[in-house]
Amino acid sequence: VEYQVTSQRYKISVYRRYSDFDVFHEVLLQRFAYRVVPALPPKRMLKGVLTSVSEREFIEGRRRALGRFINLVACHPFFSEDELVKTFLTFNGSDVQTKLRDTCKKTGDEFMTHRIATQAKEYLPADIQAQFSTSRDVIRNIHNSFQKLRDRAEKMADRSKENATDLLMFGRELSTLGSDASPLPSLASSQSTWGTLRQSLKSLSVEFSVLSDKAAQQGRREEDDVVEKLNFFLDLLQSYRDLCERHEKGVLHEHQKALHKYSVMKRQMMSATVQSKEPASVEQLESRIVQQESAIQTMELRNYFSLFCLHQETQLIFTYLPITSHILGAFVNSQVQGHREMGEVWNELQP
């Protein structure tokens, strides 16, 4: 499967495969480990898992998810200005994967290139840990609620589409009923108006077909403007959750490990001095300790830079929150339009 990726900003279309997205995601994560890099959708359908999703639906879902991924990246205040993103969106040569890897190798990770990377500590508020912990809880609750909103919106969009099918089938059955030209038995034709009524049923299927179209349009609107937008924001919230985990398991963990290693070395050094070992081995140990001290210092700087980025990414989530009103607006508009249009057809049917 190949995708045509068109950027409005660069006014260019490029062709990309899933594996190109995969490499792009990998290098983006290497370069911006301290930021909200959204996840990619799975490459394949999980085999052996009971699922009601067909192959076609899976491919369409994956296309939508790749679209959300690249749009979140292209709208991010820091990713969007990076060479990697520009390369992915504009490079027209034969091997975009090598080009991406080379670009990443050449620039290094964000800590190496950010102008204030080593002074991040000076910019952090004193209560950064408390602020982070509060924001993280708030965002977690928002994430949980948005997942429920998405599930409900998805069901409503599905029901609109099912409504479309039912209305169409209802109209078709009326038409079948009306098209029955078999003569009525005399006991029926003398007492009822069934003959005339039957005639008029045939034409009703047209109105039901219009109703069905309106319901299908409503379903599509809800899927594109409501469910898809909710998924977009959910992808961002998930990437924030992943970032928090990376921050704790990554930088903090590495820092702890380095400190532990340092204390072991110090102990070794002390016992070596006490036991007055060979000067060469003591010297070697000393130089390793100096190296380790410098590694710890870098890690401390990285830790502050990671917190600095985390603080910015938290602000980014809060900046995105007003998207809620965009989504609700789209939902209300879709409902108003759907009910109005369908109301008009039902009114025509009433006589």
Partner: peptide
């Protein structure tokens, strides 16, 4: 340097990328 002073509309208007399947 720490503050992101951008609105949602400014973020969303940075770019719009279409991803279409090639049949």
């Amino acid at each position: 340097a720490l503050t992101i002073s951008q609105t949602l509309d400014q973020l969303l208007s940075r770019d719009t990328v279409q991803v279409e399947l090639i049949p």
